[in-house]
């Protein structure tokens, strides 16, 4: 690793100030950032650790909305997001227990790994990503692989998930990393169904609108009969070719709908 200083502010305001320094970078749970620092893929001068900021760790449900602090770990979400069981289940299945004890929802959403689980939940739920400066709708937040609407120095302080009537997330794991080779989050709201897919597209997490339309009329796996995605635009790598990923999106979507019943 290159050398850097670590600061551990205890408030969002102090963290924002610290992030204003030259070559400063936020450190959430570090479960992705630290391995990339080890590989010398990043060279911050200052790492601003967010893990001591208690004000962004809360999880609470009110008025049909589950609010999760950006600093909440996957383990906390798994344990405390009972108001949104599909989301709690998703969190309980990210990485492994030790990773879940450090990794945070804010870190995951800020990183926007194309195979991460949380982006699918946020997009399928039409969540609102709250930062120290503004509120961003999930539909406006994800801008492609590892790219989001966040500005430099902006911190995800909270994520607000409207709680759906029914929802489920189904992940087909990449055999080595155990990230999503394809993950599909389906959420049924009174005004329609949203389907978000992670792991599959070269553009990162996306909504499968044809499936949403079909499911909004008939929320059952059979509503998806005959629907498929083209292989074009899907990722291809060691573990899966684009056509296989496209196929899996269909299978996982049907399974998610079934699981959500």
């Amino acid at each position: 690793m290159y050398s850097f200083e670590i600061e551990s502010p205890v408030s969002v305001a102090d963290a924002v100030a610290a992030l204003g320094k030259e070559e400063a970078q936020a450190l959430g749970g570090g479960q992705t950032l630290i391995p990339s620092l080890k590989a010398r893929l990043a060279a911050p001068a200052v790492l601003v650790s967010l893990s001591k900021i208690d004000e962004i760790k809360g999880i609470s449900a009110a008025d049909g909305v589950l609010s999760i602090g950006g600093g909440a770990t996957h383990a906390s979400v798994a344990a405390e997001a009972g108001a949104y069981p599909a989301l709690a289940a998703l969190a309980a299945n990210i990485g492994d227990p030790a990773v879940r004890n450090r990794g945070t929802i804010g870190g995951s959403l800020a990183n926007n790994d194309p195979a991460a689980c949380y982006p699918a939940a946020a997009l399928a739920s039409g969540a609102t990503i709250v930062t120290n400066t503004r509120e961003i709708a999930a539909d406006d937040y994800f801008e492609g692989m590892f790219t989001t609407a966040l500005e430099d120095g902006e911190i995800v302080t909270e994520v607000r998930f409207p709680i759906p009537e029914k929802a489920a997330y189904v992940k087909f794991e990449q055999p080595a990393s155990r990230f999503a080779l394809v993950g599909v989050f389906v959420a049924k709201y009174p005004d329609g169904v949203r389907v978000a897919v992670t792991g599959a597209s070269e553009e990162g997490v996306f909504r499968w609108e044809e499936a949403e339309a079909a499911l909004s009329g008939n929320f059952s796996a059979s509503a998806l009969d005959g629907l498929s995605l083209p292989a074009e635009g899907m990722m291809g790598d060691l573990h899966a070719a684009p056509d296989y990923r496209a196929h899996l999106v269909g299978v996982m979507t049907r399974r998610a709908v079934t699981a959500a019943q």
Partner: peptide
């Protein structure tokens, strides 16, 4: 890459991968 788990320790009662946490934290 934070996967093998040979470094798991307990910090404040929780298991963590010691290779993926700074001492300062």
């Amino acid at each position: 890459t934070s996967q093998c788990g040979a470094c798991v320790i307990h910090v404040d009662g929780k298991s963590v991968k010691a290779c993926t946490m700074f001492a300062a934290e």
